[in-house]
Design a protein around this nucleic acid. Structure first.
Length: 211
DNA sequence: TGTCCGATTGGT
DNA sequence: CCAATCGGACAG
């Protein structure tokens, strides 16, 4: 009998955002939707550290209907709308009362690729577009059909949208960079809280080695 | 109620 | 570089 791949547990997510963001690399995000199953390997994440992080929606403990889920237990989905048109998926992490989250920024598509291509309007295009299928926070939610309406607050330790352990990514294959599009975040702007699988062709923004 | 603007994307 | 597009946050 084949051993089922381990699902990530609440304990996994109940650590600080920097640890979880790093450890999520190589894990597999799975969505069992009515249309079919899609999945992909996590290759890019960003940590948002709650009260003490100007870039975070929960900066200074801002608690509203939008940010509410981040104040609850780890392992739940924080989905928000950005620029009036793109949904972004985060995993709530850390401990109750401390609003931290990890943004999922890019995946290497694994299962349900035809379905994802259709949802992204890329069906029939060159096989090379596979690299751009989930190469951004808004793209991966569209490809996997994740939305606020359907997924805000859901338990990611359940059986609809969840993570599998996947493969271990060695430290020398990981790069940490500044987060994308947080120029407004003052002294938090340049902190290396974005984590990428260094050589992946599936990233939203190419990782570039320093000169 | 009114104004401002964004954890993005795709096209010029 | 620029527009699309709209909900959230906050001022009044």
């Amino acid at each position: 009998m084949e051993l089922a791949e381990a699902k990530l547990t609440r304990e996994f997510f109940s650590r600080n955002a920097l640890i979880v963001a790093r450890e999520l690399l190589g894990c597999i995000l799975v969505h069992e939707s009515a249309e079919g199953k899609t999945s992909g390997i996590v290759v890019e994440t960003e940590a948002y550290r709650g009260p003490d992080d100007r870039a975070a929606h929960s900066f200074r403990g801002r608690r509203t209907t939008r940010t509410e889920v981040m104040f609850g237990p780890a392992g739940h989905a924080y989905v928000y709308l950005i620029y009036g048109m793109h949904e972004c998926l985060n995993v709530v992490v850390g401990s109750v009362g401390l609003p931290e989250a990890v943004l999922l920024r890019a995946l290497e598509p694994l299962e349900g690729i035809e379905l994802m291509l259709r949802r992204r309007g890329l069906h029939g295009k060159s096989p090379r577009v596979r690299h751009q299928l989930c190469s951004g926070p808004g793209k991966l939610t569209q490809a996997m059909n994740i939305s606020r309406a359907a997924h805000y607050g859901i338990d990611l330790c359940d059986n609809v949208l969840y993570f599998l352990r996947g493969k271990r990514i060695r430290d020398d294959a990981v790069a940490a960079t500044a987060r994308i599009n947080v120029d407004y975040a003052e002294e938090w702007r340049d902190l290396p809280w974005r984590f990428v699988v260094r050589d992946s062709p599936y990233l939203s923004v190419r990782w570039r080695p320093r000169a």
